[in-house]
Design a protein around this nucleic acid. Structure first.
Lengths: 249, 249
DNA sequence: AGGAATGTGGCATGAATACGCAAAAACATG
DNA sequence: CATGTTTTTGCGTATTCATGCCACATTCCT
């Protein structure tokens, strides 16, 4: 990994999370903490960030005021994202939906990962593009402005022709009896096809969506291989899903 | 392998992967690292890439700091964008490339316009999505991180099946004899196909790109219907293009 | 206050690079 | 076509750069 490349990655992380820890970065990028410190120094000299003990802060850190719930659920999604990112290994083909949870997964991808990510979600693609070494494939079709995702027959037929190792779905409702559900018909269609086109299906959701329903059916519990929430796997609310044979992380 | 050929290949690799390593390239092209280094030097002097220890990076890494000239040219591009947007009428199918000039056009679109915009450029799609009433279609394929555009056989075959009313191209070099040229092979291919798939071809460029050349040929002057720059149509530098039968705005 | 974490400066090492030079190739020119 | 010139390339050497490691100072947290 080139020096500039590394610094660009650090800068990206800083702007994303508003802070970075030297120790974490060094572990993530697999260089010594000395190197990270030197990078932070240089970036600080260039005015790109603010160096502090133990790491660095984004320059816009002052403006950010932590406001209750939204940041709270953000943190939960970060946890989910990290668990999800850990599942991906070099060389995999990964199909993903959109949604904030998936975005957090994209941000948590280790910089050395070499895999191929396929998605129709424009925000997700934007995140993937930030990554130094992964391949990014965009599914084309008509763009849904509110979902920021491509939908339509073309997108569906493209996904049908894919055979992915993993499929990550950010879902808004999951129930032990009814499975996962969605409130947008076209997105539900897309997710169905994505499930069919993948070896393993990973559902990511914050725990408050567990045992909730929406009008349109996506898939049954039996179609899901792995469920990721911000809770530890032994949380009581997850128990029925484990009993149903799902691997819960 | 010729020198120019080699440098075009290097440039292509840089635009594709955002980075190249001298050692890898030297092995790949089977020339000494010195030669690669000299090539990278030259390309760096020409502003085509950024030379760093161990290899080179594409400009998109530093686009934060790369804004030296662009603030100035931003205003010119706004003018171009307004002229371009005025050409579009309700019901049209419009095919566009990427590039900052095209973005400015997207921003200048009248809010009441009802048309369909088709593009593989992610920044352009993002702009189109802001618009209240236009239809947006994304061309899917592998994403070039540098150009932020989808490129590949799939994208090309999709564009081939389109019959658009208008095609807007942001171009980096135009010359009265050689026509429009480009430094990325795959983007040149895309633009060629886009030209073939459209009734009318509109080229948008700031005037400083007029009478400049890049290695890869896109199309001849005769293939262009309309040329838009920030200058008034009677500017002397535009005269040869008017004489060549192009409508200059 | 005191232990742990973090930062500083120096130094060693291997990788990347600049530079000079010479051989080879391409080009020009009469 | 022969000859001289320029360009391009590869190699050896000295130099610079990037990085990790170490000893020691500083700061942080309780």
């Amino acid at each position: 990994m080139l020096k500039k490349e590394r610094q660009a990655y650090i800068l990206h992380q800083v702007n994303l999370h508003n802070k970075v820890l030297s120790s974490l970065l060094s572990h993530e990028i697999r260089v010594s903490e000395d190197t990270i410190r030197r990078d932070l120094m240089e970036l600080s000299d260039e005015g790109k960030l603010i160096k502090v003990h133990g790491g660095a802060l984004s320059h816009s850190f002052n403006d950010v005021t932590y406001t209750g719930l939204s940041v709270y659920s953000q943190d939960m999604k970060k946890i989910i994202g990290q668990k999800a990112a850990a599942l991906i290994q070099d060389g995999m083909f990964v199909l993903t939906s959109g949604g904030t949870t998936i975005i957090e997964m994209a941000r948590a991808l280790p910089p050395a990962l070499r895999a191929t990510f396929i998605s129709g979600s424009i925000p997700a693609i934007l995140e993937y593009m930030q990554h130094p070494s992964i391949e990014v494939v965009m599914i084309g079709d008509r763009v849904s402005k509110n979902a920021k995702i491509t939908i339509g027959a073309e997108a569906i037929s493209k996904i049908k022709n894919i055979n992915a190792d993993l499929c990550f779905l950010g879902i808004n409702a999951i129930d032990i009896k009814r499975g996962t559900t969605e409130n947008d018909w076209e997105i539900a269609q897309l997710k169905k096809i994505m499930i069919d086109s993948s070896q393993k299906v990973v559902c990511c959701t914050i725990s408050e969506k567990i045992n909730t329903l929406q009008p349109i059916h996506i898939c049954n519990i039996s179609d899901i291989d792995i469920l990721i929430t911000e809770l530890p796997p032994d949380a009581p609310v997850l128990r029925p899903y484990i009993d149903a044979g799902i691997q819960v992380l």
